[in-house]
């Protein structure tokens, strides 16, 4: 698992496409920004899968569930994805925007979303073999 994070509009997806040369490689790209829902199972997945907009999926659950529930559900997903990735030649890429460096939001629901996103990112980063931060197209490998 490879986790890609960094600020919004910093070129994270573009970096993934170029780094993995996805123009010329079969892959499945699921994006929260394009209305795809959280893939709760790995049916019909190709061997190379990119999940984009993690923070948006977290937001969806954050609006419905308690923080510990959101986090637990994500951990279960992450475990099942790690399981899926064990088969040979499979790779999963997760892309999530960093929400963590602004002023404390006025609205409780936004504070909750921001908090739980940070925790989910910690869980993702722990399970991922590789983590990169993208800063205007430049990658910084932190794991």
């Amino acid at each position: 698992m490879h986790f890609i994070t960094g600020g919004a509009f910093n070129g994270k997806s573009k970096w993934v496409k170029e780094h993995y040369r996805l123009n010329a490689a079969p892959h499945l790209w699921l994006s929260a920004y394009h209305g795809h829902s959280i893939p709760e199972n790995t049916e019909n997945w190709l061997d190379f899968v990119v999940l984009e907009g993690i923070e948006k999926w977290v937001q969806e659950w954050s609006g419905q569930l308690a923080i510990h529930e959101v986090r637990e559900k994500w951990r279960m997903l992450l475990r099942s994805w790690t399981q899926w990735e064990r088969a040979e030649n499979r790779e999963l890429i997760l892309i999530g925007s960093d929400l963590s460096k602004g002023i404390v939001p006025m609205l409780a629901e936004e504070r909750k979303w921001r908090d739980v996103t940070g925790w989910v990112y910690q869980d993702i980063a722990e399970m991922a073999e590789k983590v990169d931060i993208i800063w205007y197209g430049i990658s910084q490998k932190i794991k």
């Binding site: 923070e55 929400l99 963590s100 602004g102 002023i103 939001p105």
Partner: peptide
């Protein structure tokens, strides 16, 4: 300026 590391809303 660095202003993109928070929720855009």
């Amino acid at each position: 300026n660095e202003v993109l590391n928070e929720r855009i809303g």
